[in-house]
Design a protein around this nucleic acid. Structure first.
Length: 616
DNA sequence: AGCACGCCGACT
DNA sequence: GTCGGCGTGCTC
């Protein structure tokens, strides 16, 4: 009888909805002995059958009438207490409900009404001595792998697990190969329900001790986690594209702290945020003798190409000739995909545009189609002008496919090919490769004799506080990939990004970059919360944004800055007009709390979706 | 998120 | 009179 009183009667349950707080359910007698925190249960929520997660157990509830738990789905908690804490922190940092955070951390199979028979790891493990935070400067390929191999080996010897995050799946294969461990599991996308479940259980049971994967792998239930590695943290791929817009790098750091495990960031050109952390928080910096460095030659285009006649300057032509004669590979880098950025009728001036996004369509010569860079929709190139039926459609604005034709004409003896997201097979046999960012995905595997960046300045002209960082990262990586020479064509030869890479002076870049971030109140000194609003009618979305802005501006707490409501970088995508408001301040928590309060107070408007993003 | 409740305009 | 639009609020 006494025992019976101690059994839990009430379960606090959260669901995958944007609602704050948990909900009380009575636990039927037959479940009271087996119920635990972290199990999933089927519940009736607002007359709907849903899957919820039990986050607490109680004896009493302040509610009179409770619905019962309909059934329990797991024998052993699907989510352990540390993972629950992690998701709670995630919800606070990225402004979603705890429930949404929990469900985003579960693999899609477990978000649904599926039963599991999980078993927990019974492997013996030794506790950690002292968790380390390591920054591994990726400037010596072989020694980098030696270091990581040894670290991973050490961790496994203690019976602890390893989590490795990569920016894309192709890199996972390479990492797995380099580590040469047997109990490695790559978290692939697009698995069958059965496979996905099997993979999840292999980590829970300790059968696999090393998880390698992209973004969502940060939640992999690796048993006795002892070591987290993040490769190339500077990639945008670590940011989730849907709400909650979490950042896997940051979540990994939260997880390391919670779990008391070691963390290692591996990067050739880390984020300024990381550089500061390493200096200020006394991270261990591991840096080896750098591999031999290629020469950097800067071509000042205002001297060599004042009339802007060709994107390939004379010095570049000379170099291409020289390398081709020596039977060496040439890579020409330009960050513009496709053939033409603009297709217009020379008779009536009609320009081919995406109706749903109001942007010019990009012509892809390789696929003979026009694509929209915002919504990815595509259509065939019309034979005649849709407006005047004339025969004068003309393409303008060079992409790498157009360049391919020009270069092929200039060097008829050379084999020329494109490598970008539209031509994704690596042209191994080409003499001259025209490429975009895509080239970075072969960074670990291939290097080239000569790389030229045709239009470096384009990298610096984005309206984003991270653009200098991105340009720096790009330059460093391309310099590493070029065995002999990196050529940079620019009109801005005195820019600090270029200067720092020329001198390979990391300190110089980060000092300047951090100073600018500080002056302009950007991360890591202050945090950014971006409010995005979208809807069908431009006036309505703007009116709502304006109303939200006014309310924010009126009640903003001390030290928080709010910008006007302005059209987004992409003002229209898929027929939805988009506006944003930016908030800056020292504490994300304070800003998010404030934003939530204000949004509750401002009148809602039908069909307008509001989302919140942090630090991007 | 989704679903009910409730309050105002044009219809058999 | 009432059907149905949409703004508001709640979900244990």
């Amino acid at each position: 009888m006494v025992k019976d009183i101690m059994l839990p009667k009430i379960a606090k349950v959260v669901v995958d909805l944007p609602v704050e707080g948990s909900f009380d359910y009575s636990i039927p007698k037959e479940y009271q002995k087996q119920v635990t925190i972290g199990q999933r249960a089927v519940i009736l929520f607002n007359r709907r059958k849903m899957v919820g997660v039990i986050v607490d157990l109680r004896q009493t509830s302040r509610f009179k009438r409770l619905n019962p738990l309909l059934s329990l789905l797991d024998e052993v908690p699907a989510i352990d207490t540390q993972a629950l804490q992690l998701t709670q922190q995630l919800s606070q940092q990225y402004g979603c409900s705890w429930g949404e955070a929990i469900f985003i951390s579960l693999p899609p199979v477990l978000r649904r009404n599926t039963r599991t028979q999980l078993s927990l790891s019974k492997i013996e493990y030794s506790p950690l001595e002292k968790p380390q935070s390591i920054f591994l400067h990726d400037i010596n390929k072989e020694k980098k792998w030696d270091f990581l191999r040894q670290k991973v080996h050490e961790t496994l010897r203690l019976g602890q697990g390893v989590l490795i995050l990569v920016h894309e799946l192709t890199a996972a294969e390479e990492v797995s190969k380099r580590l040469g461990q047997t109990n490695v599991m790559i978290l692939k996308k697009k698995l069958s329900v059965k496979q996905e479940l099997a993979q999840w259980m292999q980590f829970k049971s300790g059968e696999s001790l090393v998880a390698i994967g992209t973004r969502s792998a940060v939640f992999a239930p690796v048993a006795h986690l002892g070591f987290i590695v993040i490769f190339d943290e500077e990639h945008d791929f670590y940011k989730e594209e849907q709400s909650p817009y979490y950042d896997a790098r940051y979540v990994a750091q939260m997880r390391a702290k919670l779990q008391g495990c070691s963390l290692c960031l591996v990067s050739a050109a880390p984020l300024a945020e990381t550089w500061k952390e390493v200096q200020k928080k006394g991270w261990e910096k591991v840096s080896f003798e750098p591999d031999s460095l290629s020469v950097v030659q800067v071509v000042d285009m205002s001297n060599y190409n004042p009339q802007k006649t060709s994107i390939i300057s004379f010095p570049l032509q000379n170099q291409i000739q020289k390398f081709l004669e020596a039977k060496k590979k040439v890579v020409l880098f330009m960050n513009r995909r496709g053939f033409a950025a603009l297709t217009r009728c020379n008779q009536c001036g009609f320009t081919l545009r995406c109706e749903r996004c109001d942007v010019n369509l990009t012509y892809l010569h390789s696929k003979q189609i026009l694509v929209c860079r915002h919504c990815d929709s595509s259509r065939e190139l019309p034979k005649v002008c849709p407006h005047c039926q004339g025969n004068y459609l003309k393409s303008m604005g060079k992409g790498i496919e157009k360049l391919e034709q020009e270069v092929a004409q200039m060097y008829p003896a050379a084999k020329v090919a494109c490598y970008d997201r539209d031509n994704p097979t690596f042209p191994a046999r080409a003499d001259i490769i025209l490429t975009t960012q895509t080239i970075l995905s072969v960074k670990e595997k291939i290097s080239f004799d000569f790389i030229a960046i045709l239009n470096f300045d384009a990298e610096l002209h984005h309206m984003n506080y991270r653009c200098a960082q991105k340009a720096f990262t790009l330059l460093v990586h391309l310099r590493q990939m070029a065995k002999e020479k990196l050529m940079v064509q620019t009109y801005m030869r005195d820019n600090y990004v270029l200067k720092s890479v020329q001198a390979m002076n990391y300190e110089k870049f980060y000092r300047k970059e951090l100073q600018l971030r500080k002056e302009l109140n950007f991360p890591p000194y202050q945090h950014l919360v971006i409010l995005k609003m979208r809807g069908d009618k431009e006036e309505d979305v703007f009116a709502r944004s304006q109303a939200v802005f006014e309310a924010l501006d009126q009640k903003k707490p001390e030290g928080v800055r709010v910008t006007d409501a302005h059209p987004d970088v992409k003002p229209k995508v898929r027929d939805k007009y988009r506006f944003s408001i930016l908030l800056k301040g020292k504490s994300v928590k304070v800003i998010l709390g404030f934003v939530k309060k204000v949004l509750k107070g401002v009148k809602k408007k039908r069909g307008i979706i509001v989302t919140v993003e942090v630090d991007y």
